[in-house]
Design a protein around this nucleic acid. Structure first.
Length: 229
DNA sequence: GATTGATCATAC
DNA sequence: GTATGATCAATC
């Protein structure tokens, strides 16, 4: 993406939400122009395009920082591709699996919970047959997990973290977990990260990440939007 | 049609 | 290489 004009960080949640609302209904082609960029024809070689574009437009701190997108506000930004029925088209990446420390961290202090504590969801049209520049942003939603959602996330995280902490990451498939799952998060299948096996010995494994299942984000949208039947 | 495992771009 | 931003594409 070309060098963008800079947008100041929002000072309050209300300001952030107002800015995001002002972008709803606008297509990615026009939004890209506003930062001096051009929307790609497809996302095969630009998978992070939408997220990075919206980050810029809303004044998020620079990408690739291990901090909330809106540091001052403690808010994480997530664009969410949705189909024409308003259903998420993809799972949502949350955080990488910290193989070195996960056996010593509790839910209350883990990165998954921290990241999901406050999220600005920005739906974006995600039909693959809709050209990227024509895809429009939807109405944003500033969200925190309710007690039930927190409990669901916690149960899955504790189960998954338990398996990993006992050295069983190689036995974990994406089928595990009702709302949260563990999947590869890597440049390619040859990527490696140091983990711990069942005997407590270090070994090299594929980097993994925690993802929210689409069914979980679909429920968030269902509760907060009037969706087509 | 939905899901899992694999992959891509960029910043530092 | 590691972190961020995610979607692709093979398969079920």
């Amino acid at each position: 993406m070309a060098r963008p004009p800079t947008f100041s960080p929002p000072q309050t949640e209300a300001e952030l939400l107002a800015r995001a609302r002002a972008l709803s209904g606008v297509c990615l082609g026009e939004l890209a122009q506003r930062v001096g960029a051009e929307a790609p024809v497809d996302l095969r070689r630009a998978k992070g395009f939408t997220g990075q574009l919206v980050e810029q437009l809303l004044g998020a701190s620079a990408a690739s920082r291990a901090e909330p997108d809106f540091q001052r506000l403690g808010v994480e930004l997530k664009t969410l591709p949705v189909n024409r029925r308003g259903r998420p088209a993809e799972s949502t990446f949350v955080s990488t699996v910290d193989l070195a420390e996960i056996d010593r961290v509790e839910w209350a202090a883990c990165r998954v919970r921290a990241k999901l504590a406050r999220v600005l969801w920005v739906p974006v049209e995600g039909e693959r047959d809709l050209p990227v520049p024509a895809r429009r942003l939807g109405e944003p939603l500033l969200w925190s997990p309710d007690p039930d959602q927190d409990a669901q996330l916690r149960a899955d995280w504790e189960e998954l973290a338990g398996v990993i902490g006992r050295g069983g990451i190689e036995s974990l498939s994406a089928r595990r977990g009702r709302v949260l799952q563990v999947r590869p998060k890597a440049a390619n299948a040859r990527s490696r990260r140091q983990g711990t096996d069942e005997d407590g010995l270090p070994f090299a494994t594929l980097p993994r990440g925690f993802y929210l299942r689409a069914s979980f984000t679909a429920e968030i949208l269902r509760r907060n939007y009037a969706l087509p039947g």
